[in-house]
Amino acid sequence: MKTKIIDRSNCRPVITQAGNSVALKTGSWRSLEPVLLKENCTNCLLCWLYCPDMSVIVRDGKVEGFDMDYCKGCGICALECPGKKGQKAIRMRKEEKE
């Protein structure tokens, strides 16, 4: 979202557009990113349940990936993931940024 720089014409802490928070991406300060290893995923959805944001994308009861516009890279999903036979389905890796 292109942010309008505040000047005297809009110097008022008022939000006039309802629901405009969808326009604000908050994942920019992530340093670790989650990686999904589908072969180890049982779709138990604990990652979806534990995600403090709404960044685990689930469709038809199956984990599809992560919404990187909002994922902060906290790693809770990877920590909680029980995986399959002791092999985690989510691991965190250092994110390479351009």
Partner: peptide, 17 residues
């Protein structure tokens, strides 16, 4: 909505205004 957070990105501009 009144009173949302304005942090380092625009607080400075707000005070200038």
């Amino acid at each position: 909505s009144y009173g949302p957070l304005i942090v380092t990105d625009q607080y400075h501009e707000y005070k200038n205004a």
